[in-house]
Nucleic acid binder design. Structure first.
Lengths: 198, 198, 198, 198
DNA sequence: CATGAATGAGTTTTCATTCAT
DNA sequence: GATGAATGAAAACTCATTCAT
């Protein structure tokens, strides 16, 4: 088991290094040696732990998706659901998305990058699709409980996640002052909540 | 004039070739020779008409943005504004966005690619930012006429364009059946129109 | 004849342009288009007037050698030989070499460049060799009249021209202050004159 | 240590290969692949050991200057200075320069090439300048001991080194029979020695 | 397991030269 | 004669991958 852990440790170290690399360069322009340097390991080991650059990418996608998902689960676990209305849960979930995901510029950059890679890379696309579906289902569940119909909640969560993705992209591309992502996100949330109550 | 036209002709031929290339490969993996092959010209001419690969990219961004914009202007020119209510104009604009832009898979792919490039490339980012701002201003104007306040219309159009961008990405990434972008877009449009009327 | 002159004119215009180019770049790194730009003509004409880049080079060598030689002849023609001692003629010739040739940095640069090309290029080498021999013979003649024996004057002028070439190189390479080419040249001239008198 | 040696070994192997290449082609026309072929290594390794072609050049300059200098030091170390007059030391030094440096055609070719490169390339020029100054100082020291004044010895050694450079060029350019570099060098040496005695 | 030397395919770019108009 | 579009060979350089130690 110790063996296994050391292995796992090293692999994570490398994937985290890639994450840091992607903040300054697209995956395509990031060389194996760049990643190795960021991970402070010899570039040869990358081929020991992963069978190719593509293999690193695929593992990275899993890693980033699960850490992204982990953020939500950790947050959800910390919420005192007892006596909280479903509407309130939805409201807080939206706030979480705004603050921790969409306005997290580094995370947004990574997701823009992954999205682009997925658009050309079938395997990555499959992984990303599943992640989005999981995410959509999670929100659809919350919406369902908050009173939306089966069909409504599905459409609602799809549109919502799409909107968050768009806002992510804009938080990366647009000028902070000119665009005011924060203001738009909270305004939009109010709109959504108002519509729910109706 | 003949000279000038040949130049412009060739440049467009090359940019269109790049557009086709981007449907199967990211810009980074598209070589000068790939573009030349797609344009059915010798690769040397690409360096005759553009001073570097980056120069091709920058010109391509302008080209694609203006052709995208052109689509809207052409459409708008074709609308018989006489006697059309502002609400109706908004509704039709949303339909145009849905059908001609967001559900246009090829265009969406290109925009996902451009978005990613922009996230790492300052000059491209500046160009894209301006394009988005123009787009946002256009929709804000429509919303303003349809009765929204100055502040509201700005936030509305920003959120709307972000949402369209997200839907674009999803139309590329997600499974057509599983996601039903079309259904979501029209549902969302109804929501928006209903909210406007309120 | 007018035709001929126009042709000759154009060719000289091009060769002079090359001369200017060589002040900032070696011949190898100077493109046909660079020369054309410097000559303010279309690059196509260079192939009309010269059959290849090598042909331009060969003509340039002739041009520069004859203009270099022309400088001396013009100077010599301007000297009032009447009643001038042979020693005095030698002294003045040395001064001419110092001032007009060796200390002429631009000319020196060109000669360093030509010397290097000659070292790898048989045809250029032949031309340069002949130019040096003519130069050597000229100085040997002056030395002969100033009293040196046949053998002495040959060796003297060979050593002298070599020395001037070395000083040319140094005037290009060395720091002006550190090296003081001017001081060395005049000091050396005094040494030579003293030795002649002996 | 083994590692370090392999590195140093390979780098020297490459620099020596370049030296051989320069006997038939100027640096500018010598491709990375040419050097690799001469060194009997894959062209990729040249980029492994040196960061660019310019880096190879700069290292080569250092290499050739120090090996050139090494020749003199080795020779000087082999001289039995005991009981040798300073005049005799000067005489022998001149003979060394004649025989081992100036008449060494291969070395002369390399120096002509380096001189030309230096005339256009600041970094190379700086290196070459320093090498010449070291050389000049060495000879000035010998001349000083042989009885010349401070100023005289400086001018003498400058002129001498310039003359040797010129003779080097001529040994490369001129016809062996026509020019008789050997004869001129020994004649000139006698002149110098005679002048010293005076 | 770790290291770093080596390979070779592939990339962007430059450029002398040709040639139709 | 003059122009500039087009060609294609060759250059420097990068990099994923392999492998001996």
């Amino acid at each position: 088991m110790a063996r296994k852990n050391v292995q796992e440790e090293r692999r994570n170290q490398i994937l985290k290094a890639l994450q840091r690399c992607l903040l300054s360069k697209p995956f395509n322009e990031t060389s194996i040696k760049d990643i190795a340097k960021a991970a402070k390991v010899n570039h040869g080991v990358l081929h020991y732990y992963f069978k190719s650059k593509e293999d690193i990418l695929l593992n990275f996608i899993d890693y980033i998706i699960s850490s992204y998902r982990g953020m939500y689960q950790e947050w959800a676990a910390g919420q005192d659901m007892e006596g909280m209305s479903h509407q309130e849960l939805l409201r807080r979930s939206l706030i979480f998305m705004n603050e921790r995901i969409t306005l997290n510029r580094d995370l947004s950059r990574i997701f823009v990058e992954i999205g682009e890679i997925a658009s050309y890379h079938r395997k990555v696309r499959t992984k990303l699709r599943q992640a989005y579906m999981t995410w959509i289902d999670t929100f659809a569940g919350v919406a369902r409980k908050a009173g939306l119909s089966e069909g409504e909640s599905g459409r609602f969560s799809r549109a919502l996640i799409a909107y968050y993705e768009g806002m992510s992209l804009f938080s990366v591309i647009m000028d902070r002052e000119e665009f005011d992502a924060e203001g738009i996100l909270s305004w939009f949330q109010d709109q959504v909540m108002a519509a729910m109550v109706r």
